[in-house]
Amino acid sequence: MSIQHFRVALIPFFAAFCLPVFAHPETLVKVKDAEDQLGARVGYIELDLNSGKILESFRPEERFPMMSTFKVLLCGAVLSRVDAGQEQLGRRIHYSQNDLVEYSPVTEKHLTDGMTVRELCSAAITMSDNTAANLLLTTIGGPKELTAFLHNMGDHVTRLDRWEPELNEAIPNDERDTTMPAAMATTLRKLLTGELLTLASRQQLIDWMEADKVAGPLLRSALPAGWFIADKSGAGERGSRGIIAALGPDGKPSRIVVIYTTGSQATMDERNRQIAEIGASLIKHW
């Protein structure tokens, strides 16, 4: 067993022997301040990774656009098919120029040779490549099948209805392509620590998230040296922004954090800054 596999296998073990965790309302004060600064709703939840206990939450059962955070769930569904012998990570998928959609920095470079399922998941999570996500959605049967996968996990809230990039439209009061912070946090925890996926697939999923290259201005910008984070960000229309993450000190994750916002007129930089400040408060009061 590799060191990384050992780390993920012992996530519940280490967490069980940690000192009790206590909620700190100071972080919620910052979440509410972010709402004021952005002029928009902000949803927040913080779960203990081992027990699933909610440590703090704000608007945990209000719907927010998922945006690209759905790509972690998508690759979880792909990995479940791999575990069941219905898919192979090494299978190569070929596609054409007509398949390319807006923001496809990886797939646009491989029109000639195609990409493997493993490479597509890596591109979808680490670079948020939209064509990679659409190609992977095709392998599982489309958005409705991802929703069905989530329902089978016990998540009857999260739903995907459309493809990239239309799913980022974020129309107010439109339930399409949305989740709730509580539902997303619980589902992410199941994917990373539950028995739904094999140990190898859980490790692969967290490795992809740990290698995320496009979430630097968010929670990662607030992390002290030595902290662990595996995350996936999302951005959408109407001032929408979000991030889902597993993080913790001492090089291992111990909490799940989900943050979503929508309806702001603020710039992307300002949305990023507010999420980073929430992260800084979380870490300060850990």
Score class of each variant (00 low, 15 high):
L167R: 01
E237D: 09
D212A: 05
V72K: 04
A183T: 12
A245Y: 01
M115P: 02
S122A: 11
H151K: 07
G251R: 11
G43F: 00
L247Q: 00
T262S: 07
R220K: 14
E164G: 01
G85Y: 06
G114H: 11
K213Q: 06
P217M: 09
G39Y: 11
M115H: 03
P217C: 14
R202E: 13
H285Y: 07
P181I: 04
A133F: 02
Q86E: 07
L146W: 11
V101L: 08
K53H: 12
L74Y: 01
I206C: 12
V157I: 12
S57F: 12
D155V: 01
S96I: 12
L38G: 08
A215E: 05
P181F: 00
D250M: 07
V258S: 05
T107G: 05
A211G: 14
D250S: 08
T262H: 07
T261S: 13
N98I: 06
L196G: 10
I125M: 07
E26C: 13
A235E: 03
T69R: 00
R220V: 03
Q265P: 08
I54F: 15
H285D: 10
F64T: 01
L38S: 07
G234E: 03
C75Y: 03
R255C: 05
D212N: 15
I243H: 02
E145C: 12
D177P: 02
P105D: 05
T262M: 11
L191W: 05
A124C: 15
V82F: 10
I54D: 12
F70G: 15
Q204E: 07
S122K: 10
T147P: 04
G114S: 07
M115E: 04
H94L: 11
L188C: 07
A200G: 13
E164S: 01
E102C: 05
I45W: 03
E46Q: 13
L219I: 12
D129T: 01
A245S: 10
R92L: 10
L218N: 02
S51A: 09
R202C: 10
I256F: 10
M66S: 04
S128K: 02
I283G: 05
P172Y: 08
F228K: 06
L74P: 01
S80I: 10
M184Y: 11
A123V: 10
W163G: 08
E102S: 08
T178G: 03
Q265I: 09
S128C: 02
F64A: 01
R176W: 09
H24G: 08
A132G: 05
R118W: 13
R220G: 04
Q86N: 14
R238I: 15
T107H: 02
K284H: 13
P224C: 05
W286N: 02
E56H: 07
T262A: 09
I229V: 14
P181K: 01
I125Q: 03
L146V: 07
P249T: 11
P165F: 05
S240E: 12
A84H: 13
N130V: 01
R118T: 10
P181A: 14
